[in-house]
Computed example of a mutant assay.
Amino acid sequence: MYERILLATDGSDGATAAGAHAVSLARRYGAELHAVYVVETRTGYDNAIVDPEVVRRNLREEGEAALAAVETRAGSDSVVTSIREGVPHEELLAYVDEMDIDLVVVGSKGRSAFRTILLGSTTEAVLRADAVPVLVVNDDTGGSTRP
């Protein structure tokens, strides 16, 4: 059913829950699992106070940690990982096209400060694009991440 599954991760609890589902689905269908972290390039800080390169480096390190966590969860199964820079939903949709992805798995909310929003802005934008099926996984902080 699925040959290539994309997990969009930002290291949040929602992305961790989505990762459990993505790994399970990839195993079930014998699909190639891709995990992508996008370093957000739209700045929300004062460049006179914060060095953009320091922020970019810190975000890249967070991305490396998030992708390493996906690889750990996948165990012996291989994962194609990528860190991209840009507007998250645009980069994810470009990756879908470039890699001929069949399914996107994403958490319902990411690291945004707007925790009361029903869906995260990246998740909503990927859904609205209607490029491929999207599995939205609720952040299950109750401890269960069953697929």
Rank of each mutant, 00 (worst) to 15 (best):
Y2S: 01
Y2P: 05
Y2V: 02
Y2K: 00
E3P: 00
E3T: 01
R4K: 03
I5T: 07
L7A: 02
D10E: 02
D10V: 03
G11E: 06
G11I: 05
S12I: 08
D13G: 15
D13W: 11
G14N: 09
G14W: 13
A15H: 02
A17K: 04
A18F: 04
A18I: 04
G19K: 00
A20V: 03
A22E: 14
V23R: 00
S24F: 14
S24A: 15
R27M: 06
Y29D: 03
A31N: 03
H34S: 08
H34M: 02
A35L: 13
V38I: 04
V39E: 13
V39M: 10
R42W: 12
T43W: 08
T43H: 05
G44C: 01
Y45W: 08
A48Q: 05
I49V: 11
I49N: 01
V50R: 05
V50K: 03
V50H: 08
P52M: 09
V54S: 15
V54E: 15
R57G: 01
R57K: 06
L59F: 05
R60M: 08
E61C: 02
E61D: 11
E61I: 04
G63W: 07
E64M: 00
A66I: 07
A66Y: 11
L67F: 11
A68H: 12
A68D: 14
A69H: 10
E71K: 14
E71V: 07
T72Q: 07
D77Y: 07
S78A: 12
S78N: 09
V79D: 11
I83N: 11
I83H: 11
I83V: 14
R84F: 06
V87L: 12
H89T: 05
H89W: 14
H89V: 06
E91A: 14
L93M: 10
L93W: 07
V96N: 02
V96I: 01
V96R: 01
D97T: 10
M99V: 05
M99R: 12
D102L: 02
L103I: 09
V104R: 03
V104A: 04
V105W: 09
V106A: 13
K109H: 15
R111L: 13
R111V: 09
R111P: 08
S112C: 07
F114M: 04
T116V: 02
L118D: 03
L119M: 10
G120P: 09
G120E: 09
T122E: 14
T123I: 09
E124S: 05
A125R: 06
A125T: 09
L127Q: 06
R128E: 12
R128C: 05
R128N: 13
R128W: 06
A129M: 04
A131R: 15
P133H: 00
V134A: 00
